[in-house]
Design a protein around this nucleic acid. Sequence first.
DNA 1: GCCGTTTTCGGCCCGACTGTTTTCAGTCG
Length: 562
Amino acid sequence: MKNLELAKILYEIADILEIQDVQWKPRAYRKAAQSIESLNEDIEIIYEKGRLKALDNIPGVGKGISKKIAEFIETGKIKEYEKLRKKFPVEFMKIPEVGPKTAKKLYEKLKIKNIKQLKEALKKHKLRKLYGFGEKKEKNILEGIKFYGSNKRFLLGYILPIARDIEGKLKTLKEVKKISISGSLRRMKETIRDIDILVSSNSSRKVIDFFTKLDNVKKIIAKGSTKSSVRLKDNIQVDIRVIPDKSFGSALQYFTGNKSHNIALRKIAIRKDLKLSEYGVFKGKKQVAGSTEEGVYKKLGLKYIEPELRTDGGEIQASLKGKLPNLVKYSDLKGDFHVHTNWSDGSSSIEEMAKSAKKFGYQYLGICDHAGRLKIATCLDEKRLLKQIKEIEKVNKKFSNFEILKGAEVDILSDGKLATSDKILKKLDIVSASIHFGFKKDNTDRILKALENKYLNIICHPTGRLINQRNPYKVDLRKVYKKAKENNKFLEINSYPNRLDLSDVNVKEAISENVKIAISTDSHNVNQLRFIELGIAVARRGWARKKDIVNTYNLKDIKKIL
DNA sequence: GCCGTTTTCGGCCCGACTGTTTTCAGTCG
């Protein structure tokens, strides 16, 4: 699967074009890149099935970019990109604080070609000589380099399809008896360092040979008779381990982890005069469990623990006492509350989004385009919002057993007021509100004030963090939980891969305060509806039950509640 | 380079914040 590799190239083309002060194209390339990294399907398969026309159908991809994608799939390269990357170092703009103008100056005025040279130049204070550069800027760029260098984890949402693709290919081998993704990926951790795959088989060599020859492998790091590691072209490491079938359960348990969960289990085994390893549960030399995970937990006197809970964060005690939560299931959701359309910064139409949501098996879809007066992301002003309400009413007539909920994602202004007037909000089925600026302040009072608005339903991405990019703003969540509970408001788990906000830890706190949670994707095109599983995973990692999640309610009930 | 609310040509994200050159350039969301 080459989706991520291709997306990275398109992002880099955008950066270089921006350095050259090319108008509009950077935007187009970035939009296409975003769209491609969100795809669930292998871009090569899309091309194989539908050629250029199918590529052109991807939101944000048109005549020009689809040709470049085809070139990439057929030759492994994009000529234009190869040409561009010779003109400017592609890495510079990935450093926070370094934008197109700075990147250009570094290269043209100081002849700096890579990050190593940039570090040296910073040490020698060479940047100070440039117009507009001072002490602070120098310090900020240094910190930016540090951040960029330490940022080696991949986002769950973009890794899952790649891992499942590999899993699917391995499954076609007749030598593969059982197979599972394991490690942090199976625990659905928000970021992933590598992909771990576990296979049971009697002919491990054949499995490993096949694995190391997968078409996207860039480098074989290690290859033995039972395990192997490779690096894919998009730099993700994949580890495979092949074990005998009778040990599949215990190995899956072991390789799923996490480490301290495993240590705790082994201690329990010792107390019971048993031994637990990846090969099984043993009484003396006799294997007494290990072919299934359930069997392993049972033998240790534990109720089965879902992978998402395995953090040694109280799940083992809960399991011993039979007090594990009945977690919300991936199939429990009846709708999505927060998606965008081409009325604001999304790229699919209202009808396209609704059709896809219905195909997803949903009963409802909340369209919450940006609304306000700030004009960020082509916000809807009140006039256009009213017009969109009319349009949704019209589109709704085309559906049965499904309803588009009229909504908006309204900006929370600096004083905590909402950017759209109550008169308009009153007409909506669902009102979401978000902080989109002022991240450096303490935003507690601002959110508390917003929670007082009588038409508000949901606070979106309540902490504002962006994984690997931006820390959460200051906010006293305990006060937010309390007020949300009092005023009957919901807090969002935003499922977008780099948000996952609230986080698992926050969710656990919130539901212990009896706050209801809304899981939404914040989709900007039809392909992003799939992100919902990331949000559900966060909920599960936060011990949420079905009743804690409002979009497990059916259409009739949710309309009443809203 | 993409796309279509009215548009197949002509729009497309603008304001906050930071740091520095003290009046605005650059970055970010």
